[in-house]
């Protein structure tokens, strides 16, 4: 059967499952969170403290290579999204990565594999988190912060600036959503596999 002949006249999307609708809704949620960030009002100063603590803790875990502990701080419906440019939508634009909980776990496994040459030897990173803003959200809070990542590997240094958006949920502020926007991805970076 040819590919063209395999397409039902009405197209499979006409029978799109509710599961698929949930995927598209999650993608829209991510796209809207990114697109609406610049229009948000001034942040809630009451949330600055807990938001900063959560973001700084994450940065410290990543810089220390404590990836399993970092993985434990995500919800089951987690998404880490690194778009290539802005504006962007995860359902229509190529991304550097969009991980669900399963692929996040595989990413941690990959970081521990001695034959994963892209990160063997591993990058030595220092993250500087700044300009933290936070707003209340239905399940917790949403934050925007800036990030400077200094990376050393194979005797070379690379510095990337970024901003990151987090959706932190529950009393323990677990990461449900993280969007990492690295402008240098639009011009070319060396081996970005240290980005998390």
């Amino acid at each position: 059967m040819t590919v063209a002949a395999a397409i039902p006249p009405e197209g499979p999307s006409a029978a799109a499952s509710s599961d698929q609708a949930a995927v598209l809704a999650r993608y829209d949620e991510l796209g809207e969170l990114l697109a609406g960030m610049d229009d948000r009002p001034a942040a809630d100063p009451e949330l600055w403290g807990p938001a900063s603590a959560a973001l700084l803790h994450e940065a410290r875990l990543l810089d220390a290579g404590r990836f399993e502990d970092w993985l434990g701080g995500w919800t089951d419906d987690a998404v880490l999204w690194v778009p290539l440019s802005t504006p962007a939508h995860p359902g229509s634009d190529q991304s550097l990565l969009l991980d669900d909980r399963r692929r996040l776990a595989e990413r941690v496994e990959w970081r521990r594999d001695p034959s994963a040459w892209g990160q063997q030897p591993p990058s030595n990173t220092t993250r500087i988190v700044g300009s933290v803003e936070a707003w209340p959200a239905p399940r917790g809070l949403v934050t925007r912060s800036t990030l400077l990542i200094d990376e050393h590997r194979h005797g070379r240094q690379q510095q990337l600036t970024a901003f990151q958006i987090h959706e932190l949920v529950g009393d323990d502020l677990r990461r449900r959503t993280k969007i990492l926007v690295v402008p240098a991805l639009g011009t070319g970076v060396r081996n970005p596999s240290f980005l998390l």
């Binding site: 395999a6 039902p8 499979p12 029978a15 799109a16 499952s17 599961d19 698929q20 995927v23 969009l98």
Partner: peptide, 18 residues
């Protein structure tokens, strides 16, 4: 990520060849 729901939609439509 999100393989299963998209795959099942194509399966329900009988278009897994795609």
């Amino acid at each position: 990520p999100f393989r299963e729901p998209l795959e099942s939609t194509l399966a329900e439509a009988g278009a897994t060849e795609l």
